[in-house]
């Protein structure tokens, strides 16, 4: 196994992330730096991420973030053995900034470039906290993705088992937050107000849970509409909206479906480990219910701490470290940014 230091760059959405990870000869990975520069506040008044605003912010933040990461890690350019970057999926203009920067660093330092899959990186980040990952079922949920993946091996092919057919889970949180007059991004605010609410106050629908529905796909669009109808009916009747109860009931509907499908997928695919990732994995109710259901099903639950769940450079460096350790063939400097990179492609060759 090759040991070394990997610098990882992530710009697929609104976070400019630079992480540095060391991989030792025995395959152990260690996080040395995880610098994040977020443009989330610039998007708040638009109620969602504006791609051009994100891309502009990446250009300004990119090089300073690399500087800070190297300072934090206490390393110099000579110490870097590979550069990894999110090649997709994500916002194309945003991805392009990170990919171009990664190529420049890799070429200037004369080290391998690894263009990697953002979703696989969300899974790989878990190894920084919880050690080597056995074959696992991964549930990735954020503002951009909601996927169930079978991950027999981090560097190997990933099999998608299901995904959202409409809104991403995080998107539903944002839209419902807006309905309830809560700020963007909605996830943390719903989580907070839901703690004082009754999750069984309103029986919101569980999307795609019928016997004939795709067992591992998700749908949150109908749920979002149901919440809107409920709120509008209350407003029409002149009744104050019980924000905490609605938030808790909505959140329960989302995490109920997510965890039920994830546990079922793990069992059906013979996996003993369920791994959570993505910004929504920071949701306290999702973590709690996933733990309960994994315990009941005899599964091991692995959840990285919240700062590693949201988009960051450490996850890209972690995946790059596993690829370097196995002497994976680097990506060419003609590497494209691919906004719809399929999850089956962990490393873009």
């Amino acid at each position: 196994m090759t040991s070394g230091l990997v610098l990882g760059i992530e710009t697929s959405c609104d976070e400019t992330g630079v992480g540095i990870v060391r991989v030792d000869a025995d395959g152990t990975t260690t996080l040395l730096a995880n610098e994040i520069s977020s443009s989330v506040e610039e998007h708040a008044r638009f109620g969602g991420v504006v791609p051009e605003v994100a891309s502009r912010a990446h250009l300004q933040a990119m090089v300073p973030a690399v500087h800070r990461a190297m300072t934090t890690a206490g390393i110099t350019a000579r110490d870097v053995d590979a550069v990894a970057v999110t090649a997709g999926p994500g916002l194309s203009g945003a991805l392009l900034v990170g990919v171009a920067a990664a190529k420049a660093y890799a070429a200037a330092w004369d080290v391998p470039l690894y263009g990697v899959n953002h979703l696989a990186a969300h899974v790989a980040v878990d190894t920084l906290q919880n050690g080597p990952l056995p074959p696992a079922l991964a549930l990735l949920v954020s503002g951009g993705h909601s996927s169930l993946l079978s991950v027999p091996d981090l560097a190997g092919p990933v099999t998608p088992l299901g995904a959202t057919i409409d809104d991403a889970a995080g998107e539903a949180f944002d839209k419902v937050a807006r309905l309830l007059g809560l700020p963007f991004p909605g996830g943390p605010h719903i989580d907070r107000v839901a703690r004082d609410g009754d999750p069984s106050a309103v029986a919101f629908p569980r999307g795609l849970t019928g016997p004939r529905d795709a067992p591992f796909d998700f749908s949150f669009s109908g749920l979002k509409t149901a919440v809107a109808r409920h709120v509008e009916a209350l407003e029409r009747a002149g009744t104050p909206v019980p924000v905490a109860d609605v938030a808790a009931s909505f959140q329960e509907a989302v995490v109920d479906v997510l965890t039920a499908k994830a546990v079922r997928a793990a069992r059906e695919h013979g996996m003993d480990v369920l791994c959570l990732g993505g910004g929504v994995a920071a949701n306290s109710r999702l973590r709690a219910l996933a733990q309960d259901r994994c315990d009941a099903a005899g599964l091991v639950l692995r959840v990285p701490r919240p700062v590693l769940c949201t988009d960051n450079g450490a996850m890209v460096a972690a995946l790059g470290a596993h690829l370097l350790a196995r002497d994976a063939a680097p990506s060419p400097l003609a590497l494209p940014a691919d906004s719809s990179l399929p999850v089956t492609e962990v490393l873009v060759g």
Partner: peptide
């Protein structure tokens, strides 16, 4: 046009930083 423009600018900035 912004998307293309940024490729050259971030490449130059990163090369300059790295070198």
């Amino acid at each position: 046009p912004f998307t293309g423009l940024r490729v050259g600018m971030v490449t130059a900035a990163a090369l300059g930083d790295a070198l």
